[in-house]
Design a protein around this nucleic acid. Structure first.
Length: 512
RNA sequence: GGUCGGUUCGUCUAGGGGUUAGGACACGUCCCUUUCACGGAUGAAACACGGGUUCGAUUCCCGUACCGACUACCA
């Protein structure tokens, strides 16, 4: 009988949540939903030195922005809480002690100076792997080398100590990773990792096993950087006698730098000019802000779609997926094994696709807000019209207002380059006649009539419309490029169009 | 250095013992067009290398190279 699927995303609140972490959260979420199970969020705050208070809220807001909603979390706890490791602190020592009792762990009193000395000694002796292991522990200060009385005395006197796992000398450790298949490691290459730190907090290795067991986690889906320590985790499950319910592991391929070498990091984003975080993050220490996808203008559903395809694909040629479609199509088997280079051009393409697919009404608020930033108030109808003009030609919402603000603000200056090439006598002839026509016009002025009237005007003067079109655009918008001219006329209305043409006629000098 | 993982167009990838090795992004060309885009069409572009196994290997096995992760009282 199979258990209900329960997965967790377990970030550390040490700063902004990296995009790779967001993808890990997404895959966990998709898997849980696909399997009809639960997705939990657990905060791994066992490192007191690196703790950043605002990071937790950042994680919460990032997931909320993308619609990755945990079924259980510090903010909506279920029955297996608490959901912060710091609040579970008391339970870890008991488990560590159980391991000591069973001979699978031991106390170690070595100071960091002694540890450094040991590593130096081993390096000098050309030991290939200087580490605290089954060989070297015999030369250190621990409950395996010290007498029972001395250990008791040290413990009683409050000497700082850690608890280390006692890795067996010779044992093949194997695990069946859902993405990578069988991975085998010999225990002799593992070291006696610290389980309990001297500050009384557990390390990740102990805490994640204890918590995953207590919280009935069935699948551990995490980044590939954990693969080397996975054998240790398997050993720990065995030592605790929890093999029966040991979760299945799935180690996700890493997100790589665009230029090919190494894990994607914060610095890459700064260097290459794109975000690596979901939301803006202000670093309180240096006062700098790391860019976020949200603030850069990425739509949450587009970003989500992009993220899902970084290492996964549905196996057919579809590319546009909503969250529910992702859930439907998702499967662990279709996650790739190799690292994925981060390609911002693809992210932009997704954003363009989503922008185009949205209604003008949905996007109008961006335009209203951007205009408001310039202390210009525009109506919903106007905003929607501007969206209609621009949404198929931009990558980000901010470009809508930028590319159409001339509709609201009549040009007072004109592109000199275009003027010097196109503002000829033909243009002036046609525009003068068109302005006159518009000034007497009282009918419905839409894109079609605007065009028909312009055509008639040009024909009457025996001038090819194409020859003067750029001049028309220049007169009305001040620019040589932009969205469909007739649509612009329709939004402006006959009166305003005439006014602008008159202004241009009075302002610009005819060439030739 | 050691352990582990990975390697199909520039990038994301499909495929998989016999295929014209497919798609998408980006790029080139053409069409559409009042500009710039959108859109449509089209082009260039890949199985890291060497050995096996096999009638046949890009696909399976081994090795090499390269890339990466890990190698803390951080996660």
């Amino acid at each position: 009988m199979s258990r209900e699927v329960r997965v967790r995303f377990a970030p550390s609140p040490t700063g902004a949540l990296h995009i790779g972490g967001v993808r890990t959260a997404l895959y966990n979420y998709l898997f849980a939903r696909k399997m009809g199970g639960k997705f939990l969020l657990r905060i791994e705050d066992t490192d007191q030195a690196r703790f950043v208070p605002r990071a937790e809220a950042y994680i919460q807001e990032s997931l909320a922005w993308l619609g990755i909603s945990p079924d259980e979390s510090p903010w909506n706890p279920g029955e297996d809480g608490p959901y912060r490791q710091s609040e579970r602190k008391d339970s870890y020592m008991k488990y560590a002690l159980d391991l000591v009792e069973a001979g699978h762990a031991y106390y170690a009193f070595d100071t960091s100076e002694e540890l450094d000395a040991m590593r130096e000694r081993l390096t000098a002796a050309r030991v290939v792997q200087p580490q605290y292991n089954s060989i070297t522990r015999t030369q250190m200060n621990n409950s395996l080398t010290l007498s029972e009385d001395e250990v008791k005395a040290r413990l009683a006197s409050g000497d700082p100590y850690v608890i280390r796992v006692k890795i067996p000398l010779k044992e093949d450790v194997r695990l069946n990773d859902m993405i990578r298949g069988w991975v085998m490691v010999h225990s002799s290459t593992l070291d006696d990792k610290v389980l309990m730190k001297s500050d009384g907090m557990p390390t990740y290795h102990l805490a994640n096993i204890v918590d995953d067991h207590l919280m009935n986690i069935t699948h551990v889906i995490r980044g590939e950087e954990w693969l080397p320590s996975a054998p240790l985790h398997v050993l720990l499950y065995k030592f605790f006698g929890w093999e029966e319910t040991m979760p299945q592991f799935a180690h996700l391929p890493l997100l790589l730098k665009p230029d090919g070498n190494g894990k994607l990091s914060k610095r890459d984003g700064d260097k290459l000019g794109f975000p690596v975080f979901p939301l803006n993050w202000e670093n309180k220490e240096d006062g700098e802000t790391a860019a976020g996808f949200r603030e850069a203008g990425y739509l949450p559903d587009a970003f989500l779609n992009f993220l899902a395809f970084l290492g996964w694909n549905p196996g057919d040629e579809r590319e546009i997926f909503s969250m529910s479609e992702l859930i439907e199509a998702f499967s662990m088997e279709r996650i790739g094994k190799s690292g994925t280079k981060f390609d911002i051009a693809k992210a932009k393409w997704f954003n363009e696709q989503y922008l185009k697919s949205k209604s003008n009404g949905e996007l109008a608020h961006y335009v209203i807000a951007d205009a408001a930033n310039e202390e210009i108030t525009i109506l919903q109808d106007t905003a929607e019209a501007l969206v209609g003009l621009m949404k198929e030609r931009v990558t980000f919402p901010a470009e809508i207002w930028q590319g159409s603000r001339f509709v609201v603000i009549a040009p007072t200056e004109f592109d000199q380059d275009i003027a010097s090439k196109r503002w000829n006598s033909d243009a002036v002839t046609v525009l003068s006649a068109y302005a006159e026509l518009l000034e007497g016009f009282t009918g419905e002025y839409d894109a079609e009539t605007a065009k028909a009237m312009l055509n008639e005007t040009a024909e009457a003067k025996d001038i090819k419309l194409g020859k003067v079109m750029q001049a028309v655009r220049l007169a009305v918008t001040g620019n040589g490029v932009g969205p469909d001219m007739m649509e612009i006329f329709a939004i402006l209305g006959a009166e305003e169009a005439a006014k602008r043409i008159r202004f241009a006629l009075a302002t610009l000098d005819v060439i030739g």
